[in-house]
Design a protein around this nucleic acid. Structure first.
Length: 774
DNA sequence: CGGCCAATACTG
DNA sequence: CAGTAT
DNA sequence: GCCG
């Protein structure tokens, strides 16, 4: 699944780049624990009064915290509030996308949406999904499980919220009294006068920061406010003139939405967390918080614009579940769950009813300097696993220690900031005309811009070569270096300059200087000169062939696929890989993935209408094209894989018989065997164009049977992306737990059914499938 | 120096 | 067990 | 390859 999503070399490169980015996540994940703890501690303190029971187990605290972010009970009202929000967030996606996509889909299956299934978060099918989601992944999921967890927490939340509201209002009223928007500070005992930073560092000049809570009672916040003021910011208590709304750590969107809706904030204002100003200072630049690859780093937890979904449906936990699950809609229909409203075409509603909010195209970046003035909605693209990504050091400075140190901390340890390239899923591009670089309908795109674009380009090409050479760690280092380079605001010209940057050592620094000064990268040119290189690339793209085998063949003198066909001894799988070389390397349009999935679902329903099929992989993440199709098969009430084996056998048998499946690549499902790998082709009947033009393209397809008790973990695993998975697993390990496709295990922990709970237990903020691109 | 990009399952 | 794939 |  994940790995194969990018058969082509180019894609591989991109893939690795992503990995790199995620790696950071991983790195940071270590610290996540700390961060989390700090956050929770603060959160707890903040809501102290509200908390009835003081003695919470760590787990309890965690769940409370997470539920705070997504109280189900408030889902409906939340949506309303959200829609009414004056704040323009980025990313909200337009409704139109669905229609567009569908319409343009070449392989659209005319058949009704009957067997809906895919729970995915694809915006295209959003409406449907929402409707069907009721069943959700598993289980009584929505219905039973979630409710429980939410129930309790909600009450607390309510209390907390009240408190918060009070505080916010309080400051608000203060404001009224002292109409002085700017410089006047609340009556705060200012220990020390502001020590204004030099003019050159007054990066916040002309910006008005509105804090939530808008007071400086909290020492940490006071420091942040002071710091901001020293750099030119105006602390405003008038929401109407706010350019930035800075939300304290520990507060989720749900906590503040009612406040937001009760006050007027200019549509151009930006909603960010308390980390944003700090990062601006560090970078000495007002960058677009939505355009950082830091994923959610500067967003408020639960900010509807985070998810790519329409604001409308965002809120409840329920819908999130909905998005993940798939259901066989025929029966699902009646399903339940309330909130028909939400489910009700979010896509349709959103557009028409609240086009405005959704609208604000570019507000994230402030008017003045932001050099990275990319449209806000970009943030969706850059979304990633941020679960794991906070820079601990920074936080620590902020929260508990001397704020000054953070400034000095500029370069050093801050390796984290990585700017991911704007991944372009065309849906993002489509849904608004003012798009830009996201052209590309295939996969990720590369960003040629930037002061170091030229250098980056060559380094990335070298990465490709190193990948082929199987120099894993070198690739790793290059990627990190490229990431660092990518976020440099100025061109790095000398080795000295380069070496001063994190992740760039002596060696790479030299290469960088060479590239900048000569325009060439000799090592790259040399490697490229090797005639065997091309063959190596071709061979390693064959299914079933890795770099060792590819290299071996090259050494044997083979150079073309024909050489292999005639001279090499191929394994069964490799034979298929060679025979269908082009097919298997061809990306699968989203529409086809759906069509293929629908077909399987139809057959599956005929065998056993109670099984559920969920298309995972990149499709579930909303990708425009996929490298293969991953189908998760589960059924209510199952607790062991075995229980589904008969079904899988039957399914494969039928699909093979009707020639949907063309070949099996791995099917030994002896004991724990829980999967089937093979190839399939879209039935001619489903081909949209003239039948004579129909040409079956073999597609890689995987079936994975999963007992309902493990569907949550399986969904995580099969949704990826791999980087995301790795960071999750790493995090689990750091927390003395183990995460696999079967579940999350650890002392007192054994969760496999509920995807969301796994996130919770790990202390990772929930991320919709489409937010799991790293 | 050793770690860094995991955790497993199937093929041969 | 090495290699490949997920 | 970089980092600790």
């Amino acid at each position: 699944m994940l790995p194969r999503m990018d058969p082509s070399l180019e894609n591989k490169v991109a893939f690795f780049q992503q990995i790199d980015a995620c790696r950071n996540c991983d790195d940071e994940s270590d610290t996540l624990g700390i961060e989390e703890q700090i956050l929770r501690r603060e959160c707890k303190a903040f809501y102290a009064a509200a908390s009835a029971t003081s003695a919470f187990s760590a787990a309890s605290v965690r769940s409370v915290a997470s539920s705070v972010a997504t109280p189900a009970a408030t889902s409906i009202s939340a949506s309303v509030a959200t829609s009414a929000l004056p704040l323009p967030f980025s990313g909200t996606k337009l409704p139109a996308s669905r229609t567009q996509r569908t319409a343009s889909d070449p392989i659209f299956k005319p058949q009704n949406d009957e067997l809906e299934i895919i729970a995915v978060t694809p915006r295209d099918d959003r409406s449907k999904e929402a409707t069907t989601s009721s069943l959700v992944h598993g289980v009584p999921v929505d219905g039973s499980i979630i409710p429980e967890t939410e129930q309790q927490p909600n009450k607390k939340i309510a209390r907390q919220r009240t408190d918060l509201t009070t505080r916010m209002l309080r400051s608000q009223s203060d404001l009224v009294q002292s109409s002085l928007p700017s410089i006047s500070m609340p009556k705060r005992k200012r220990t020390k006068p502001l020590e204004m930073a030099p003019e050159s560092e007054q990066i916040f000049k002309q910006f008005h920061f509105f804090y939530i809570p808008n007071d400086d009672l909290n020492p940490a916040r006071r420091m942040r406010i002071t710091k901001a003021q020293e750099h030119g910011a105006t602390w405003t208590r008038n929401s109407a003139e706010a350019t930035h709304v800075i939300v304290d750590k520990g507060l989720s969107y749900d906590d503040i939405k009612s406040f937001l809706s009760k006050n007027i904030f200019p549509p151009s204002s930006v909603l960010v967390n308390d980390q944003y100003p700090i990062e601006c200072l560090r970078r000495r630049d007002i960058f677009d918080p939505n355009n950082t690859v830091e994923k959610y780093q500067y967003k408020v937890p639960g900010d509807p614009t985070l998810t790519g979904e329409p604001v409308l449906s965002r809120p409840s936990t329920q819908d999130s579940d909905a998005s993940q699950k798939v259901k066989s809609r025929r029966d699902a229909q009646p399903s339940t769950h309330a909130t028909p409203d939400c489910t009700q075409e979010s896509s349709g509603l959103v557009p028409s009813s609240h086009p405005e909010e959704v609208q604000p195209p570019k507000l994230a970046t402030k008017p003045p300097k932001g050099r990275a003035q990319t449209p806000v909605f970009l943030d969706e693209l850059t979304t990633c696993i941020n679960a794991v990504l906070d820079d601990p050091e920074k936080h620590e400075y902020l929260d508990e220690s001397d704020p000054d140190t953070r400034d000095s901390e500029k370069e050093g340890p801050s390796v984290k900031k990585r700017s991911l390239r704007p991944r372009g899923n065309d849906w993002n591009a489509n849904f608004r005309q003012d798009n830009f670089m996201c052209m590309r309908g295939g996969t990720r795109d590369r960003k040629p811009s930037g002061p170091n674009a030229g250098t980056i380009k060559l380094l990335e090409e070298m990465v490709d070569e190193h990948i082929l050479s199987d120099e894993t760690w070198r690739v790793h280092s290059y990627r990190k270096a490229v990431a660092t380079l990518r976020r440099q605001p100025k061109e790095i010209k000398t080795a000295k300059e380069a070496a001063a940057l994190p992740n760039i050592g002596k060696s790479l620094a030299g290469h960088i200087e060479e590239i900048v000064s000569t325009g060439h990268f000799r090592k790259l040119d040399e490697i490229r000169r090797e005639p065997s290189r091309e063959a190596l690339k071709i061979f390693s793209n064959i299914y079933g062939v890795g770099t060792p085998t590819a290299r071996r063949w090259v050494e044997l003198g083979y150079r073309t696929l024909d050489d292999l066909r005639t001279k090499a001894k191929l394994s069964v799988n490799q034979q298929v890989g060679v025979d269908r070389y082009d097919d298997l390397l061809t990306r699968i349009p989203r529409a086809e993935v759906k069509a293929l999935g629908d077909h399987v679902k139809d057959v599956a329903a005929a065998i056993d209408s109670s099984v559920e099929l969920i298309i995972g992989g990149s499709y579930r993440r909303g990708a425009d094209t996929s490298g293969d199709i991953d189908l998760l098969i589960t059924k209510d009430g199952t607790s062991e894989t075995q229980e589904l084996v008969p079904f899988l056998d039957k399914l494969v048998e039928i699909l093979t018989k009707e020639e949907f499946l063309t070949t099996a690549l791995a099917s030994h499902r002896s004991d724990g065997g829980n999967k089937w790998h093979g190839c399939c082709v879209l039935p001619k009947a489903a081909f949209p164009g003239p039948k004579k033009d129909y040409r079956p393209i073999w597609r890689r397809i995987d079936f994975l049977i999963v007992p309902q008790t493990q569907i949550g973990a399986a969904l995580i695993y099969f949704t990826g992306n791999d980087l995301f998975n790795r960071s999750m697993r790493l995090l689990a390990r750091k927390k003395k737990m183990k995460l696999s496709h079967r579940g999350l295990y650890g002392p007192g922990v054994d969760e496999g059914k509920d995807e969301r709970k796994i996130f919770e237990i790990l202390g990772v903020q929930w991320r919709e499938p489409h937010e799991r691109w790293c």
